[in-house]
Write a protein that binds this DNA or RNA. Structure first.
Length: 254
DNA sequence: ATGACTCCCAGTGGGAGA
């Protein structure tokens, strides 16, 4: 069984690439972020025609998430229960015996800003909710665009990025707080190529120079640790014409 | 170098992303 996450940076622009990618990578479940579409504009028909059931939760211009699954997703949750939020950032469902949570963490913009404070509140609320979800659903996968580079080895230039957004102590502590609930960074269960990133800036030829960050993650619950066979970042779509700035991350469970 | 690119909504510029 394969699950994946991909920040598509506008589904309106990236839909053809998404369909191509699914044809080449027929994963069982995919969560996407930054659809940037209101719900009435979500292109469910071509996704369904590709063999997926899809649940979506969007808004105008920013954010927006969706969950695609080959088997019917059940018990859908949109955003963090009990956390009042104008922004569409979370979609969760039970698929194939797993609880799957797709999340688009706030960017945070700059340490000390209002947006950074929102990121911290949002992460606190997510953690409290995931803690409860793990009680109800021990076999759980939390994946998405975390907007956090957990360690210096997840940053192409740790000196330049020190203390910058995605790399602050506070954000890394939030990541560790999620892990402390009983989650495992699936990517780090395996030996990986050095300089593995999931995002490259559009500017400055960053992809060609492989200057990026690993900020898209798949966390699996401890109950699933023994089933994880592989976790890879698929750089191929980043080589497309008009690519998303993020690459998909794929996890294989036995 | 407080940049660089891309997307969006707007409307011939500016915010946001990361």
């Amino acid at each position: 069984m394969k699950l994946a996450t991909w920040n598509v940076n506008s589904l309106a622009v990236r839909l053809p690439q998404l369909l191509d990618w699914l044809a080449a990578n027929p994963v069982d479940t995919l969560v996407i972020q930054e659809t940037k579409l209101t719900d009435d504009k979500f292109p469910h028909a071509p996704i369904e025609a590709a063999g997926y059931e899809v649940k979506w939760f969007g808004q105008k211009t920013y954010n927006g998430v969706a969950l695609l699954a080959r088997t019917p997703p059940a018990d859908i949750v949109r955003n963090i229960p009990g956390f009042v939020d104008e922004q569409a950032r979370v979609i969760a469902a039970s698929v194939g015996g797993l609880r799957v949570i797709g999340a688009y963490f706030p960017n945070g913009q700059e340490p000390g800003s209002d947006k950074f404070a929102y990121k911290m509140r949002w992460c606190d609320a997510l953690r409290e909710w995931v803690k409860d979800e793990l009680v109800r659903h021990p076999e759980l996968v939390l994946m998405g665009d975390f907007n956090v580079a957990p360690e210096d080895r997840d940053v192409h230039d740790p000196v330049a990025w020190a203390g910058q957004i995605h790399c602050t102590d506070e954000e890394r502590a939030q990541f560790r707080g999620l892990v402390a609930l009983g989650l495992v960074d699936a990517f780090r269960l395996f030996e990986q190529p050095p300089k593995s990133w999931s995002w490259w800036d559009y500017r400055n030829l960053a992809f060609r120079k492989n200057q990026g960050l690993r900020i898209d993650h798949v966390l699996v619950s401890e109950a699933l640790r023994g089933r994880v066979r592989e976790c890879v970042i698929d750089k191929a779509p980043r080589k497309n014409e008009r690519p998303s700035d993020h690459a998909p991350v794929i996890v294989t469970l036995g």
